[in-house]
Design a protein around this nucleic acid. Structure first.
Lengths: 221, 221
DNA sequence: TGAATAGTGTCTTTCAGACAATATGCC
DNA sequence: GGCATATTGTCTGAAAGACACTATTCA
């Protein structure tokens, strides 16, 4: 059988975009405008163009939906059950992005009537196997939080120790002891002090930033 | 643009099959019979059939090359750079398998003139981006060894503590203290005793087996 | 009894976790 | 002074790591 003779599947890149807003972990969902699953919520995604890398496709979706460029982005898993899309064989490469939701304006694209941040605790029924992808991403997210400092990518460049702790508490849905938490974070030795922020109506906190880029710190699986 | 109008990439499943033979970690490589990269070594793999899941495609390749059915199999990563295959756009979903190489007979398939176990320290130049895939798999393998008990899948059903230790020593290329090692393995509480093997010309060792299936124990990422 | 491998315990260090009082700045 | 948040240290228990001798079988 020759190369060109194989029937080819379609390939899409879907992306689970996490952020934190109002002390809640949220995911970006879009409402589908077209069949199949018209009017159902789904993860943002779309076909990978023939001359475009998988990561570029994920970045393009991310940009189209949120306008954001610089984020933590990671390939999650590839879902390829033959019946996962009623239109035919569609394989999807799932990505996860973590963004700091300041200055994000959502834009709906053509296949989509609405886009919105949805609390992780209130996810509606989703199109395709997107529930499975989301569940998978959440496991990975928690895992990554536990073993790597990806949490910092949900924050602005400068942040306080309390802000990081709040993010951990939201993601794991439990409280941590402040002394132990600070001890652990500082012992990672990835932060540098950025001076004291006096613009607060209480004791001014030390601001920190990352010594290096997140991707350099995380690097491994 | 309609669904069917998108130009589609080809999708393959490539598989990094590890085993241990003669105290060496080895990978199964095949020698390509056809262009491109004719006469170069490559990872076994092939096109995903239109009605076949990705995992089934990987299992099929595994079976075609080794005849093995029951193994540890895990999806690694999907490689999709536009130029990775000179024939056109080919996306490959990479899998990793760990097998116990007793009773394996290699069979060359039609696109391949030869198949063989190659020491990880002596990998030749590889076709496509297979070197990258292999490097990635080795990182993941070591990571998995450190944090999960996948090592057991390189052994027969019944094994001794020394056998496990030997495998760890091979994979990490360093020695471990026997007392500490045994303590750690037993504290995992995943082994059951299977009686003493008297068929050895030295002190008869206790044989162990896993309480549960590997996949149940590993489960998480 | 020598060769080969199995099996076993203690001490030290390190890390995680429990736990509460004081400091700073604003009003 | 009252409010809001920041900052800091000790103790305890668990796990990891260093370290060496005895046990069993066979030839």
């Amino acid at each position: 059988m020759k190369f060109a003779d194989f029937p080819k599947p379609s390939v899409t890149a879907d992306i689970v975009i996490y952020t934190i807003q109002n002390k809640e972990l949220k995911v970006l969902l879009v409402k589908r405008n077209i069949e199949p699953f018209r009017n159902k919520w789904a993860l943002p995604g779309g076909f990978v163009r023939i001359e475009e890398s998988l990561e570029d496709a994920a970045k393009r979706e991310l940009r189209e939906e949120t306008g954001v460029e610089e984020v933590y982005l990671e390939q999650l898993y590839t879902f390829g059950e033959p019946k996962r899309d009623p239109r035919g064989r569609v394989i999807t490469v799932a990505y996860m992005a973590l963004i700091n939701s300041e200055n994000i304006s959502l834009k709906a694209s053509t296949d989509v009537s609405e886009a919105g941040w949805v609390m992780i605790k209130k996810i509606p029924e989703l199109a395709f196997d997107h529930k499975k992808i989301l569940d998978y991403s959440l496991k990975r997210l928690r895992w990554k939080f536990e073993y790597t400092p990806v949490a910092f990518s949900l924050l602005p460049k400068k942040f306080t120790l309390s802000q990081i702790q709040r993010i951990y508490e939201i993601v794991f849905n439990k409280k941590f002891d402040k002394r132990n938490f600070n001890k652990k974070i500082l012992s990672l030795n990835i932060l540098k002090e950025e001076g004291i922020n006096k613009d607060v109506p209480y004791r001014p906190p030390m601001m920190y930033s990352l010594k290096k880029n997140i991707d350099e710190i995380v690097e491994i699986l």
